[in-house]
């Protein structure tokens, strides 16, 4: 009898492992550690049998550095710049999220030595260097990071079924990079993402968040659009169940790296359900926090740290 029960347990476990294999594989490849797929109930759910939506009440607040890179053929795969850097503070107890976009051209001392645009930190030393540079300059502690490439973002959005959002203005660009699956990574194309409520697939969502040539605000406008898409993705993520994770993980094919463990991801997913748009605070470092300038022959963004650091301190704990 015991042998039969054991056999069923093994068969069931094998079925479960087979189902979640893509997640385990992605976890090992993308984070360097294996995932914990135990089905232990969330302590907050145990302590909250009434199903109070204050989910994750036992989870501590944490800070994630989101990194997005142009990783097309123009670049050495191991030395890509970060086109997008967003510090995200997640407070599960109050279901609050703050997003702070860091301009990619911000001129800062780099953790590896010397000074440069902050987008070079990841190129010089990967996520470790990017995190160290952000921590040193913004005086914050970063708990986790997520890096995603161009195709990764397209695949993520497509795998989630696209995003519904209100695009803030017509985004038109006559020199948009035509560098994804293109024989010439330096080729350009014209894009026109029209304004208003609409459904965007991954390719068009990427166009919306990546274009910057015809925006008065340059990179700042792009940062605002990136935050809009992240909020729209939140709505999609709220409909994702753990059973979806194999499909989502399989979609990335190396286009996503993260330090987040699967338990942490499981903690974040339900948060998306209870998060309201009003509880997402968006910050972009427009003047007076920054100003345009020149270093040598480079156009850069100069930080006004006496304004930035008090703003950052309101939300992000010191390192």
């Amino acid at each position: 009898m015991a042998v039969i029960v054991l056999g069923f347990l093994i068969a069931g476990a094998a079925g479960g492992v087979a189902y979640f294999f893509p997640v385990l594989r992605a976890a090992v490849i993308q984070t360097g550690h294996s995932g914990d797929l135990s089905t232990t109930p969330n302590p907050s759910a145990v302590n909250n049998p009434a199903g109070n939506p204050a989910l994750g009440s036992t989870g501590s607040p944490f800070t994630v550095l989101l990194l997005g890179s142009d990783d097309d053929e123009k670049f050495d795969k191991n030395h890509v710049l970060t086109q997008s850097m967003i510090l995200v503070r997640i407070v599960p107890q109050s279901n609050q999220v703050t997003m702070l976009s860091i301009p990619r051209d911000l001129w800062v001392p780099l953790a590896g030595g010397g000074s440069g645009k902050i987008d070079a930190a990841y190129s010089n030393g990967g996520a470790k260097m990017a995190i160290a540079t952000v921590q040193r300059n913004f005086k914050v502690h970063v708990d986790e990071y997520v890096w995603i490439g161009l195709k990764g973002l397209i695949r993520l959005i497509d795998r989630l079924g696209g995003v519904d959002l209100i695009t803030s203005n017509p985004v038109l660009d006559d020199f948009y990079p035509n560098d994804i699956d293109s024989p010439d990574p330096y080729a350009t194309q014209r894009i026109a993402v029209l304004a208003g409520p609409q459904h965007l697939d991954g390719t068009h969502a990427l166009q919306y968040v990546r274009s910057r040539h015809s925006d008065l605000r340059g990179d700042f406008g792009r940062s605002q659009r990136q935050q809009q898409v992240l909020i729209a993705l939140r709505a999609k993520a709220s409909r994702v169940s753990p059973a979806d994770l194999p499909d989502v993980a399989a979609a990335f094919q190396g286009e996503l790296q993260t330090s987040m463990s699967l338990p942490r991801i499981r903690q974040v997913l339900p948060l998306a359900t209870h998060l309201t748009i009003e509880s997402v605070k968006q910050q972009v470092l427009l003047p007076p926090y920054t100003s345009g300038g020149k270093v040598g022959d480079q156009d850069v963004i100069l930080a006004n740290w006496s304004e930035i650091l008090p703003l950052v301190r309101q939300t992000f704990p010191a390192s």
């Binding site: 056999g7 069931g12 079925g15 795998r159 079924g161 999609k236 169940s241 059973a243």
Partner: peptide
């Protein structure tokens, strides 16, 4: 037992949300 293992696999798949399915 093998059938049970497949059952677990497809049972888990049945919990997939529509959000992650390709819309058609």
């Amino acid at each position: 037992m093998v059938a049970f293992g497949f059952g677990v696999y497809f049972g888990l798949a049945s919990f997939k949300s529509k959000a992650a399915q390709r819309a058609g």
